[in-house]
């Protein structure tokens, strides 16, 4: 296999995922509406309740909608990672995943390409959300929109790899819906997406500790700094390490020697 073969396959996998996303307009709008509801309704309600002191990366007092914007970008990527995994379980059951897995390329390469494809989609969704949010008055530095891109690639890959790892352990589509509920909501709420963690520490030390070991917290913080053209090295390192662990687990999970389990279809055996 030459470099050109790998490049063409990579482009093909990413192009297909983006094309599918653009064809599914309902998916695009639901991905957009979810964070906007949080931003325009939830944040508006809580703006008066929560007072936020000056804390990095912010250089002045901020309103609550500004605080939760990075968390909502992370939420988009979390949901997208899970949705990509859900579609992997669906594709595996329905068959189209087999076309990918029976191509003459290493399994790890196919999974990484698939991961990048999902990340591209999540970035499109995130930018669409930021654009609409700015139209509604959210103020963000223009430079931040550029500097957050590499961070979004890293966080998107990490959250996609988490979903991929989960999908490798789930045999049937109906089981995966339950797994998603057990993963998405605790992951999102036990993080700094909606509230600063020092506030959480004041109210519950145990939950604060859980927040501190949640990789999603570091994804949110990396995005928060990225959106203000700053870098949070520690958060980026935790996200990168989590990506390595989740991806290794997913590659192991999809190893054919473990048996790519296919649901018994009628007429098959």
């Amino acid at each position: 296999m030459t470099f050109t073969t790998y490049r063409r396959a990579f482009v093909g996998i990413v192009a297909r995922e983006v094309l599918r996303f653009l064809m599914q307009k309902e998916r695009f709008f639901s991905a957009l509406v979810r964070p906007l509801v949080w931003l325009l309704i939830f944040a508006a309600g809580f703006r008066a309740v929560l007072g936020l002191p000056i804390q990095p990366p912010y250089q002045t007092y901020i309103t609550y909608d500004i605080y939760i914007a990075p968390g909502l970008v992370a939420m988009i990527q979390l949901f997208n990672g899970m949705q990509s995994s859900l579609s992997m379980v669906y594709d595996r059951e329905m068959g189209s995943m087999r076309v990918l897995l029976t191509s003459p390329l290493p399994r790890w390469f196919l999974l990484v390409a698939k991961l990048f494809a999902g990340t591209c989609v999540s970035i499109l969704q995130a930018y669409a959300f930021l654009a609409v949010a700015m139209l509604f008055g959210l103020k963000l530095p223009w430079l931040g929109l550029l500097t957050v891109l590499p961070v979004m690639i890293l966080t998107g890959l990490m959250l996609g790899a988490l979903g991929m790892l989960l999908s490798s352990t789930v045999r049937q589509l109906e089981n995966f819906a339950g797994v998603m509920n057990f993963v998405i909501f605790p992951t999102f709420f036990m993080s700094s997406a909606l509230y600063p963690l020092w506030k959480m520490r004041e109210s519950s030390y145990v939950v604060w500790q859980l927040c501190m070991v949640n990789p999603f917290t570091y994804a949110v913080e990396a995005l928060r700094f990225g959106l203000y053209a700053k870098m949070n090295g520690f958060a980026l390192a935790v996200v990168a390490a989590s990506l390595a662990v989740f991806l290794a687990g997913a590659v192991w999970g999809y190893n054919p020697s473990r048996g790519f389990q296919v649901r018994k279809a009628g007429g098959g055996e």
Binding site: M1, T2, T4, T5, Y6, R8, A9, V11, G12, I13, A15, R16, L19, R20, M23, Q24, M94, G95, S96, R98, V99, L100, T102, S103, P104, L105, A265, G267, G268
Partner: peptide, 26 residues
């Protein structure tokens, strides 16, 4: 390979489906 279960992307065109496979084969 032709699988027992349908493996085409319903929302993509015939050409888009085949191009995807062709790219996977380099």
């Amino acid at each position: 390979v032709v699988f027992q279960q349908p493996t085409l992307d319903l929302d993509l065109s015939v050409r888009q489906n085949l191009r995807y496979f062709a790219r996977l084969r380099g």
